[in-house]
Amino acid sequence: MQLLYPEIKPYARHDLAVIPPHVLYADESGKPDGLPVVFIHGGPGAGCDALSRRFFDPSLYRIVTFDQRGAGRSTPHASLEHNTTADLVADMEALREHLGIEQWVLFGGSWGSTLALAYAQAHPERVLGMILRGIFLCRPEEIQWFYQQGASRIFPDYWEDYLSLIPEEEHDDLVAAYHRRLTGDDEICRMHAARLWSQWEGRCATLRPSAQVLERFTESRRAYALARIECHYFINDSFLTPNQLLDNMPRIAEIPGVIVHGRYDMVCPLDNAWALHRRWPASELQIIRDAGHAASEPGIADALVRATDAMARRLLHLEPQAE
């Protein structure tokens, strides 16, 4: 297995004001004149952390990480105001311009893959390549699978906890039921709903149970932003038309890319990656046989690091590494 690169500290930090009231946190690490890559976190609402920088060779890459609106260290925390997919695409373009980057590599997983595709389709001339994990196309059937009926049949014990907050008469639309509680006036109810929502996702994210992954999902501040922003997006169809990302693939069909997807991904099933790969001639699909959804699972982490290494060699015209 290819290990993740060691932890590194940023050499620069930025607070980028966009549409009020939002101020985005971003940082840079690695090689200042290296190949630019932007890490696009999941959720929406999850934010970045020290792990986000460790998929890239710091001697080759200029690593940019940023927290999307309402997430992580961006402010205001968990804000839903002016928070749409188009807003996030515009933020990425504003960040690129702010940093003086002409073109960059996109690296994103789960919702990060969604936003990477939406950005690339809006600004294909700015994208050198893409490395995407746990493909999430935000189609209605994907939300139905994970938040209404589907994954519930694989994890009925975890599902019972997810349902525990919602009266039976509201079970016909659980996203709407959670949205009412996550945006209501009762702060205690909001926090409780956020924990249950995020716990459901964290429990299902790995093939083998992971206390570390679950702890990350349920940490109160992260869970609150994750649940509120995810639910806000999903009740609004992620501010995309039902098949928008697949329909627009001709715009970026020739951009080189690697798709990494766990065979047993219960959050974003493998057919998402399969559908994307079939519409993307320049992509390589790697199905990880012993993994679920999380980037931290060994097989997925290994494939992602190998993919970033290969992308750097390709774009920087370096000699292939000896096996």
Rank of each mutant, 00 (worst) to 15 (best):
G129H: 14
R96Y: 10
F146K: 04
D157F: 05
M130H: 13
S164K: 00
A176G: 06
D161M: 02
E125I: 09
E170Y: 06
A151F: 04
Y178L: 00
E169K: 10
P156F: 06
S113P: 14
I131Q: 10
Y178K: 01
H179D: 03
R133T: 14
L137N: 10
L132W: 12
A116S: 15
E168A: 13
I154C: 05
L95R: 07
H179E: 00
R126W: 02
H179S: 04
L128C: 08
R153V: 04
V105S: 08
Y119N: 07
Q144N: 02
A120E: 02
Y158P: 00
Q103T: 15
V105M: 10
Q144T: 10
E102F: 14
D157Y: 09
D172C: 06
L174M: 04
L95E: 01
H123D: 00
G134D: 01
T114H: 11
A176E: 05
G108V: 15
E142P: 04
R126M: 01
D157T: 14
E141V: 12
P124D: 01
G109V: 15
A176I: 13
E170C: 01
D172P: 03
E102G: 12
L99F: 11
L117K: 08
G108F: 14
I131V: 15
P156Y: 04
Q148Y: 04
D161A: 08
W111L: 09
A120G: 09
T114D: 03
E141P: 01
L132R: 12
H179M: 00
L165S: 00
L128Y: 13
Y158W: 07
A94D: 07
F107Y: 15
E102R: 14
I166T: 07
L95M: 08
E160R: 13
E160T: 13
E170K: 10
F136M: 13
R153Q: 10
I135Y: 09
E125P: 13
A120F: 11
R133G: 08
